[in-house]
Amino acid sequence: MTSENPRIERRGLLLVLSSPSGAGKTSLSRALLEADPHIALSVSVTTRKPRPGEVDGRDYWFVDEASFKAMIETDQLLEWATVFGNYYGTPRAPIEKAVAEGRDVLFDIDWQGTQQLSERMAGDLVRVFVLPPSAEALETRLKQRAQDPPEVVAKRMAKASDEISHWAEYDYVIVNSDLAESSAGLRAILAAERLRRDRMTGLSSFVRGLHAALE
């Protein structure tokens, strides 16, 4: 009998990270992307202006409001939302193609976008909500980021309570008190979800072949 290591085909998954701003989902996303070459970040379309260091096509696709609305009208977006006066959305075609080809995609989106993805691609979705260890830690992180003026930080803090109220809509919750520990937990979630029986599209044929070889 020969020893083989057959490759079982698998449908890709959509791993969603949501949190109030400042809870650490961006740091967790970066850590996961560095640790796992088999998952890629979904690049959203947005009407907001680029922040220092952001690159068009890498961090976001930056478009004007008219272009964004045209994408909505022609059903080119899987999900979209308005956040602090700016539009954000996920292009449909590259995501559907990636999942069909067995590639995993990471999303850094809010609860509104997650709800819309749940309506369109529920079977492919893995939802993770990231919580800060305390309100004080959240405010400290927002201030230390030094990316927003004080009035924007105040708005983000005011909105955090509403965002956190949606935690129960998610499959997993990570309290991000320690980045290394939270990153390990996120990798464990991804590893388990990749092994779900209903995602392995080639499993039935593999098992039939295994039965035939053993008879």
Rank of each mutant, 00 (worst) to 15 (best):
Q115H: 12
E54P: 00
G185E: 02
L214W: 06
G57T: 02
V63I: 12
S182M: 13
W167S: 10
N5T: 13
E139S: 01
T2H: 09
H38L: 11
Y88G: 00
G57E: 02
L131G: 11
M200K: 07
R196T: 00
M157P: 00
A180H: 14
L15V: 08
A23P: 00
P6S: 13
F68A: 09
V63A: 06
W61D: 04
S19L: 05
L203C: 10
A180N: 13
V105A: 07
Y88L: 07
T2P: 07
A184E: 04
L138I: 02
Y60D: 02
S204H: 03
P94G: 03
E4C: 08
S134Q: 01
Y172N: 07
R197W: 12
A98C: 09
Y87P: 04
K159V: 01
V126Y: 04
E136C: 13
G113I: 07
R7Y: 13
I95G: 05
L117N: 06
I8A: 14
S165A: 15
I164C: 04
A100W: 04
L210E: 15
R48Q: 02
K49H: 07
M1P: 11
P20N: 05
L125F: 05
V128S: 06
L14T: 04
D148L: 03
S183Y: 05
V153C: 03
L78R: 01
R30C: 03
A70Y: 02
V126A: 07
S29A: 15
L214R: 11
Q116W: 10
P150A: 06
N176M: 08
E193T: 00
K143H: 10
S67Q: 15
V99S: 00
P94Y: 08
A180T: 11
R141H: 09
Y88D: 06
A180C: 13
E169L: 14
M121H: 13
P6C: 11
P50D: 08
L125T: 09
G102Q: 03
N176D: 08
A70T: 03
Q144N: 15
K25N: 10
A137Q: 10
L125S: 06
V152Y: 04
W167F: 14
L28P: 09
K143G: 06
T82Q: 15
Y88C: 02
S42E: 14
P94K: 06
E163H: 09
E9Q: 14
S118C: 07
L33W: 10
S205R: 04
D75H: 12
V55K: 15
V105E: 01
Y172M: 09
R127D: 05
A191M: 14
H38N: 12
